[in-house]
Every structure is written in C-alpha cells, then in structure tokens.
Computed example of a mutant assay.
Amino acid sequence: MMHPADLPDTLAVFPLPRAILLPRARLPLHIFEPRYLQMFEDALKTPERLIGMVQPCPQPASAHQSVLRQADASCSSAAGGEPLHRIGCAGRVTQFSETEDGRYLVTLAGLSRFRIQGEVAGFCPYRRCDVTWDGFERDLGVGEADTQFDRADFLALLERFFSAQGLSTDWESLQDAEDELLINSLSMLLEFDAEDKQALLEAPCLVTRRETLVTLIEFALRGGAHEDILQ
C-alpha cells in the first residue's frame, strides 16, 4: 500500500474528456499519440509508475448542459493547452502490452485523487502539473462501504436505464459485486456529460457518489429535462 509521503509533488497528466478514474478501480487505456507514448514510457521509469487522469474543462457554450453543478468544479489555468479541471485521479500502471505498430494497451489502477496547483512549464511534449494530495487521504485506505445502499432498488433502476439505452450486461456479476466496485465502475463506464462525470469523481464519499449516480440515471430516464439540478 502506498503512503501519502510516497506520492510525488509533480505528476504527468493525461487530459481525456468523459474519462474518469476512481480509487481502487481500473481503467483501460489505448495510447497511440507520440506525446502520450513518451509520457507512458517516462512513467515506467519512475518507482511509482503514476499517470494522472484529468478532464479538460468544457467550452463555456456547453457548460449549461450539465445536469449537476459541483462547487469545486473550477478549472486550472492553461500553460500552452486547454484549461483542466483542478481535480483528477492518479493511476498506477499495473499492466500493459505493446502492439506491433508501437501502440500500448495499458491498465491503470486508481490510487488517489489530487488537486492541481499549477502547470509545469517546459519543453516536455506532454503536460505536467504540480499537485497536492491533501484532502484525499481516504483514497489510499481500504475500500468504502455504503451502509444506506438498497441494492435491489438500485439494480431495478439500472435495469430500466439499460433497457432504455439498449445496453446489456452481466447481471449476475452486478449482483455479486461489492458496493464500491459496483458504484465506481458504473460511474466510470456509463455515458454522461463531462461535467456530470466530474461530479461523480469529486463526490466526497461513496454514499454521495451513489446518490449522484442515481440522480443522473433518473434524469436520463426522464428524457433529459433542460432544467439544471443543483448539488
């Protein structure tokens, strides 16, 4: 288990819209751009093997599309690139394979969220940020439980959502999954607007994340009414 003192002050970041990583979850990545190939190869040379997943901030014209509003959803200033959300999540490279044409298929294991303090200027082809891990100490601990979780009601709602979206899944695996794995995996996998994904990432605890996820699913089942839902 990694300790807060082992976490670096500077982190390579991979800006990817609608892609979030959560602690103790796993995210598959397909890396093919030269700058991110360099980022990945540099990460492998460090003892931590960390890459920071962070979402770019949306264009102002699309900001009203978000279902949820998050108090800490402010963006960091850009240094040669588009602004980034201040909060992301670092993942440790736990598995990778290289294709014949030089691409990488990578698995990141979610470690801890971080807050961007500023971007590092320089000639590096990918973006690097000074980060702080303060406030996310719980991410490095054991998995969270949701004592208020009504699994039967949640799965019934999820089944309606999957049916409406034309999706299929392994319901037996969902039934057996631990609370945190189920809620976090769905938060990462389901298609929501980038700002709503950010709200799921920034949820302070598993209970809040589950409540946020339920709100988003119910909103989608209503057909996506245009009024904002404030959090």
Rank of each mutant, 00 (worst) to 15 (best):
residue 65 Q to M: 07
residue 183 I to L: 04
residue 145 A to D: 11
residue 67 V to W: 07
residue 37 L to T: 08
residue 204 P to I: 09
residue 59 Q to G: 09
residue 113 R to F: 00
residue 210 R to H: 06
residue 100 E to G: 13
residue 91 G to F: 08
residue 187 S to C: 10
residue 10 T to F: 06
residue 208 T to F: 02
residue 11 L to C: 03
residue 15 P to Y: 14
residue 174 L to I: 02
residue 5 A to K: 13
residue 207 V to D: 01
residue 47 P to E: 06
residue 146 D to R: 05
residue 205 C to G: 12
residue 213 L to T: 03
residue 85 H to A: 03
residue 135 G to S: 06
residue 225 A to D: 14
residue 85 H to F: 14
residue 83 P to N: 03
residue 211 E to P: 00
residue 176 D to Q: 14
residue 3 H to P: 00
residue 127 R to T: 09
residue 23 P to L: 05
residue 27 L to K: 03
residue 141 G to M: 03
residue 71 A to F: 06
residue 116 I to Y: 08
residue 167 L to E: 06
residue 178 E to T: 07
residue 60 P to H: 03
residue 13 V to D: 03
residue 200 L to V: 04
residue 189 L to S: 15
residue 86 R to V: 06
residue 171 W to C: 05
residue 39 M to V: 08
residue 87 I to M: 10
residue 184 N to E: 02
residue 230 L to A: 11
residue 124 C to H: 06
residue 56 P to Y: 09
residue 131 V to D: 05
residue 152 A to K: 14
residue 132 T to G: 03
residue 84 L to A: 02
residue 66 S to I: 01
residue 149 F to Q: 06
residue 26 R to M: 12
residue 29 L to Q: 03
residue 68 L to Q: 12
residue 119 E to I: 10
residue 62 S to C: 01
residue 134 D to S: 14
residue 209 R to Q: 11
residue 144 E to W: 01
residue 230 L to S: 12
residue 100 E to D: 15
residue 231 Q to W: 08
residue 165 Q to K: 15
residue 5 A to M: 04
residue 52 G to M: 02
residue 126 Y to V: 00
residue 228 D to G: 13
residue 102 G to D: 01
residue 192 F to W: 03
residue 191 E to F: 07
residue 44 L to V: 02
residue 86 R to T: 07
residue 85 H to K: 01
residue 139 D to Y: 01
residue 141 G to Y: 02
residue 102 G to F: 04
residue 175 Q to D: 07
residue 171 W to V: 09
residue 44 L to H: 09
residue 42 D to S: 05
residue 80 G to Y: 09
residue 91 G to V: 04
residue 148 Q to T: 15
residue 208 T to Q: 13
residue 209 R to Y: 00
residue 127 R to C: 03
residue 1 M to V: 09
residue 170 D to I: 09
residue 160 R to L: 12
residue 206 L to A: 04
residue 51 I to M: 08
residue 75 C to W: 11
residue 158 L to G: 00
residue 4 P to G: 08
residue 95 Q to F: 11
residue 46 T to Q: 15
residue 200 L to M: 05
residue 70 Q to F: 01
residue 111 L to D: 06
residue 80 G to F: 12
residue 5 A to W: 06
residue 168 S to V: 15
residue 140 L to I: 08
residue 15 P to H: 11
residue 164 A to C: 10
residue 54 V to P: 04
residue 192 F to H: 08
residue 206 L to S: 02
residue 135 G to A: 05
residue 207 V to Y: 04
residue 193 D to C: 02
residue 216 L to G: 04
residue 87 I to H: 09
residue 29 L to P: 00
residue 7 L to N: 09
residue 38 Q to P: 00
residue 208 T to A: 15
residue 89 C to K: 02
residue 77 S to V: 14
residue 80 G to N: 08
residue 46 T to A: 13
residue 150 D to K: 12
residue 95 Q to E: 15
residue 218 E to N: 08
residue 27 L to C: 09
residue 103 R to V: 06
residue 186 L to Y: 00
residue 33 E to M: 12
residue 13 V to M: 12
residue 26 R to G: 05
residue 131 V to T: 10
residue 165 Q to I: 04
residue 117 Q to P: 04
residue 204 P to L: 08
residue 167 L to Q: 12
residue 155 L to K: 10
residue 89 C to N: 03
residue 122 G to Q: 06
residue 142 V to W: 12
residue 82 E to F: 13
residue 171 W to P: 10
residue 220 A to G: 03
residue 12 A to W: 00
residue 214 V to I: 15
residue 156 A to D: 11
residue 164 A to G: 10
